[in-house]
Simulated assay, not measured.
Amino acid sequence: MNPQELERLKYPIGQHHEQIKYTMEDVRSWIGDIAQFPQQITSLTESLTTDELNWLHRPDGWTIKQLVHHCADSHMNSFMRYKLALTEDTPKIKPYYEDRWAELPDGTMDEISDSLMIIAGIHRRWAVLLNTLSEEQLQRTFYHPEHRKETNLGTTTSMYSWHCKHHLAHIEQALAHKGSF
């Protein structure tokens, strides 16, 4: 497989481009993506067999089940970052090794219902929180030591809207290719 094809499989909707400038209409759209994600990922995965849950989304990529578990892990972390940014002055967040987390026993188990429940609960609360934020609150920041920069909550909302669509596309890709790469 050539490098361009591998890149397309890695980023089926394209890479995220940081949204420094945005409108409240943009934010409402991103919140909609975040709010709809639990239903979308559940619809894609709820009737999959164990074999299908173990399909890869690309060569050397994660399985469908790892993508589901990763979204639960990632979105729990993000939700906490919002809460920290809203209650502290530019808190330094804790990065984590998502690739290592994906290899832990709970990230490789075939049963995904617990992660789907986590996603549903986190996203319900996250959407409630996001829908109450003012333009001023969307400017609150956290410091990401791995990236060595401050990021505001509006920009982070854009990133997680993309993150939801990115991993839904990965699951769709695995299903379309029947996991064979």
Score class of each variant (00 low, 15 high):
residue 109 M to A: 15
residue 90 T to Q: 08
residue 134 S to P: 11
residue 58 R to A: 00
residue 143 Y to H: 06
residue 113 S to V: 14
residue 109 M to E: 12
residue 58 R to V: 00
residue 68 V to D: 07
residue 122 I to E: 14
residue 61 G to D: 07
residue 87 T to K: 12
residue 110 D to H: 13
residue 57 H to R: 09
residue 79 F to P: 01
residue 79 F to W: 09
residue 111 E to G: 11
residue 98 E to V: 04
residue 63 T to K: 08
residue 136 E to P: 13
residue 52 E to G: 00
residue 129 L to T: 08
residue 45 T to L: 11
residue 140 R to K: 10
residue 54 N to K: 05
residue 127 A to Q: 11
residue 60 D to I: 04
residue 45 T to Y: 02
residue 102 A to L: 03
residue 141 T to G: 04
residue 123 H to Y: 11
residue 112 I to R: 06
residue 63 T to Y: 09
residue 127 A to H: 12
residue 109 M to S: 12
residue 122 I to S: 13
residue 115 S to L: 06
residue 112 I to H: 08
residue 91 P to F: 02
residue 45 T to V: 06
residue 72 A to Q: 06
residue 125 R to H: 08
residue 48 L to N: 01
residue 132 T to Q: 14
residue 103 E to I: 10
residue 113 S to Q: 14
residue 136 E to R: 12
residue 136 E to L: 13
residue 109 M to G: 12
residue 127 A to G: 06
residue 88 E to D: 04
residue 130 L to S: 09
residue 133 L to T: 08
residue 55 W to I: 04
residue 43 S to T: 10
residue 104 L to V: 15
residue 84 L to N: 08
residue 124 R to K: 15
residue 46 E to K: 09
residue 106 D to E: 06
residue 103 E to F: 02
residue 109 M to N: 14
residue 85 A to V: 09
residue 67 L to I: 01
residue 53 L to F: 09
residue 74 S to N: 09
residue 101 W to H: 03
residue 93 I to N: 06
residue 61 G to F: 02
residue 128 V to N: 11
residue 68 V to P: 04
residue 123 H to P: 00
residue 109 M to F: 10
residue 111 E to T: 07
residue 107 G to E: 00
residue 116 L to Y: 01
residue 142 F to H: 11
residue 99 D to H: 15
